[in-house]
Nucleic acid binder design. Sequence first.
DNA 1: CATTTTTTGTTATTTTATTGACAGACTTTT
DNA 2: AAAAGTCTGTCAATAAAATAACAAAAAATG
Lengths: 208, 208
Amino acid sequence: MANGKISMTVIRRLPKYHRYLKDLLEKGINRISSKELSEIIGFTASQIRQDLNNFGGFGQQGYGYNVEDLYSEIGTILGLGKPYKTVIIGAGNLGQALANYNFESHGFELVGMYDVDEALIGKKIKGIEIKPSDRLVEDCVIHQVDIAYLCTNRESAQNVANALVKCGVRAIWNFTPVDLKVPEETTIVEDVHLIDSLLTISYFLKDH
Amino acid sequence: MANGKISMTVIRRLPKYHRYLKDLLEKGINRISSKELSEIIGFTASQIRQDLNNFGGFGQQGYGYNVEDLYSEIGTILGLGKPYKTVIIGAGNLGQALANYNFESHGFELVGMYDVDEALIGKKIKGIEIKPSDRLVEDCVIHQVDIAYLCTNRESAQNVANALVKCGVRAIWNFTPVDLKVPEETTIVEDVHLIDSLLTISYFLKDH
DNA sequence: CATTTTTTGTTATTTTATTGACAGACTTTT
DNA sequence: AAAAGTCTGTCAATAAAATAACAAAAAATG
């Protein structure tokens, strides 16, 4: 049943289950079978049952799954509910965009924004003042920051990552086009390589 | 050798090859073996050779690969060089962030930005004026837009996607937390589901 | 210029992921 | 409360992806 070692492909499907279950819940649907879910989410019913059974038997034969319970279970599996402290490094457009996203509602509290650009320092986004980057390390230690959103330019990325590792930040959400080198025992890196994503589009467009 | 039907896993690795080869080129390295490349890129040498051989025999026994040639070949495979016309729908922070990214250098020309917010309309980003959303369809037809960067809110996403499909936009780069329904014969959707990515981090943080 | 070394392209093997099948548990119906 | 129907959990089969193995080609060496 539970945690033997879940594969990355399964883990990456969990947020999608979570999203769809929330939708169902908001529509007032409180019961769903793997077959019905498969029709709206686009995975096979078999895969849904197998995915969920990695974490426990949440369903019931002849009935299906209780939407509210399953939503809550997957939320727990995903570590939601717990509050995480986050900082944004690089407060340009992307950094500001991320600050304005509604990640708080999922438990990701923004506690600091940092930049090297004098023109940005002092500006407030959602009540958070952009501070000079040399305050980053100190603040991370004080606040016990869990996740850093890395939105600097390519050149600074690895240096900032090194600093983050040193001051105990446990995860880096990496928006730079760099593959960061960090010790894998202590630090998680989740890449959002926009250019890679765009080039994938280009691949499919090219010969039509 | 060439195009029998390349799997998505292979295609998603191509941009990474492209990035690393560019780095090598800029460092003045003009020859590399699959083994050497494997050490810096982090795929196995076997996988690298197999990936590349999906598209043709670019290497030479006893020598390896010519960096410049391989970089150029992969660029061609990815459809780079060809100019693509793009628009941004939703000109909030994220839309503006994308406008300021240097995607032009890869051949992605921004030809329009659209929003429903009166406060944004008329504002210029990188020389592009933000226009009201009701101009979108008309402009897409006039400019023969290839790719739309979809940065609206959740509620508008599917409606905008429907309009884009109708006016012949071939690809949607989807930043909304919605799984768009579009006819797969005519339209590509590439999702950047930020919240899914963040929840993946949460999963790994939760029990440490 | 023959020998040794390197390194590819390609096939074989192993591992991982997805799909299919079905017994048995629970629900619904009559 | 018995019978019929539903749907899960799990195991088996298939498919896909990653890795390993190796013959043959070219390069480097002496």
